[in-house]
């Protein structure tokens, strides 16, 4: 019997939830055309969901190790700000393009990460953006999103 609700129990509940949702979603698949031999489209995903659910039960019953700050350090405000910057970077690409986003991201996140020397931040940001432009746009001929501002 488990003595306390810990990481294993939380993870097990998440896994069970994913398995249940994925299992339920199989009922929304289109029907398989008649006359096809062998397994259909739903059996294999359902089998995996059942296996996952079974393993989630076993994980729930496993005692969780005491909280180890080495494995999961507390998430401070600046880490949350970095997560948010990562998430915001994707929609920002639609506005100022990928290269513009990368340049801004390197300065903002570098600062959040604890670098206080603005000239250094700007120099790294500009040189990294220039290298990316040279390698990917000029050498590999990749078309990067330009955004509304630079794309017109």
């Amino acid at each position: 019997m488990i003595r306390r609700f810990g990481t294993n129990q939380a993870a097990a509940l998440c896994v069970a939830l994913v398995a249940a949702a994925a299992f339920a979603a199989t009922y929304g698949f289109d029907p398989v055309p008649e006359g096809l031999p062998g397994l259909g489209a739903v059996e294999f995903p359902r089998l995996i969901c059942l296996v996952m659910a079974g393993m989630a039960v076993l994980l729930f019953l496993q005692e969780s190790a005491p909280h180890d700050p080495e494995v999961a350090p507390p998430i401070r405000g600046d880490a949350i700000a970095i997560f948010a910057a990562c998430l915001l970077a994707v929609p920002l690409m639609a506005v100022i393009g990928m290269l513009g986003t990368i340049a801004v991201f390197l300065v903002v996140v570098g600062r959040l990460w604890g670098e206080v020397r603005w000239p250094m931040l700007l120099a790294v940001s500009l040189s990294m953006t220039a290298i990316i432009w040279l390698v990917f746009v000029k050498i590999f001929r990749l078309t990067l999103p330009t955004g509304m501002v630079f794309g017109g």
Binding site: C86, A89, I102, F105, L106, V109, G110, R111, W113, G114, E115, L121, V124, M128, T129, I132
Partner: peptide, 10 residues
């Protein structure tokens, strides 16, 4: 790390 990890993300 303040230069390394943002570059990895880029």
């Amino acid at each position: 790390p303040a230069f390394l990890w943002p570059s990895v993300f880029a």
